[in-house]
Simulated assay, not measured.
Amino acid sequence: MIVSRFTNEARRSARRFITTSTPVHLEVDQIIPHGVGKNGPLLILHGLFGSKRNWLSLSKAFAKDLQRPVYSLDLRNHGASPHAEPMTYTSMALDVVQFCKQHSLSDISLLGHSMGGKVAMTLALDPSTPKELLQNLIIADIAPSKGPLSPEFTSYVDAMRKIEESEVGSRKEAQDILSEYEQDPMIRAFLLTNLVSDHHRMKFRIPIDIIGRSISEIGSFPYEPGEKTWEGPTLFVKGTKSKYINSKNIPLAKEYFPNMVVETLDAGHWERPNEFKQLVVDFIKANEDRTL
């Protein structure tokens, strides 16, 4: 199995702030099992404040179980990908389509978690997306609904600003400040994966100002019910302890994705990676069998 990273242009440009209507180059980790070609890859899109690094272990497991390439992307303004505005779902989806074109990918299975799930749904519904690009759609714990994000997301941005303005010199100092805003140590640890040392000061690799300005946009969705549909195989995975997919927005999702199924995990927004992996593997393999 080969694990590789593309780290040239995107890494050099990650600290530049760009305003552009054209796609940006996305940073990627790719895992290709030995003897496997490019056909039918799995692409993974992380959520808000996440990165491709969060998916490394699962990506290896997916590649092993599915015997197909797995590409985990850093979306714009996350990880090592460029910092760019606008941070809309349409622009982020176009970034992903451009990545697929650059790497000659087709018949992909596209998995998106949370914000990445809305990017994936936008890509599927966009009429400009090449018809041969998408084979399966997997959406993890998010619905195609519109509404303001929970207040804690704004508070995370505020906490990150405070950490940078305080010019802390250690992760411990950053942790102390963040604990004033978030009590859950797992969420704090997740947010601090974005923290890096920069000349003896701790800074965030993500552009806090851009994300702060984009919070309302991240709560939106670019299409109205019934306006567009994607009729390919679609899996929604709902955490029973999470509110992001609920009895009100499941029928809404069905209007966009008429061939969807919903599976549940006894989990919140983040947990149960092994059980989640099995749901995704079973779904992709089942649809693979139907096309043989």
Rank of each mutant, 00 (worst) to 15 (best):
Asp107Trp: 04
Ser216Glu: 15
Phe276Gly: 05
His199Ser: 12
Leu292Tyr: 12
Asn194Cys: 11
Gly79Ala: 06
Val157Lys: 01
Ser106Arg: 09
Gly212Tyr: 10
Lys243Phe: 13
Leu43Tyr: 02
Leu105Ser: 05
Ile206Leu: 15
Thr193Asp: 10
Gln102Ala: 15
Asp158Asn: 14
Glu27Arg: 13
Leu279Ser: 09
Ala140Gly: 10
Leu66Asn: 02
Ile142Asn: 02
Leu178Val: 11
Asp107Gln: 15
Leu137Lys: 05
Ala253Asp: 08
Gly147Asn: 08
Glu167Ser: 15
Trp230Cys: 06
Pro251Asp: 11
Leu110Met: 07
Ala93Cys: 09
Gly116Met: 04
Leu125Ala: 12
Thr291Val: 13
Met160Arg: 03
Cys100Tyr: 02
Ala189Cys: 08
Thr264Ala: 07
Ala120Gly: 14
Thr88Cys: 08
Asn246Cys: 11
Ile218Gln: 07
Val237Gln: 06
Arg272Pro: 00
Leu125Glu: 02
Thr20Asn: 04
His83Gln: 15
Ala93Ser: 13
Glu288Ile: 05
Ser220Trp: 07
Asn8Lys: 13
His46Trp: 04
Pro41Leu: 05
Gln175Ile: 05
Leu134Trp: 09
His113Arg: 05
Asp126Leu: 11
Leu191Arg: 02
Ala143Trp: 01
Ala267Arg: 06
Thr264Leu: 00
Lys64Arg: 15
Asn136His: 14
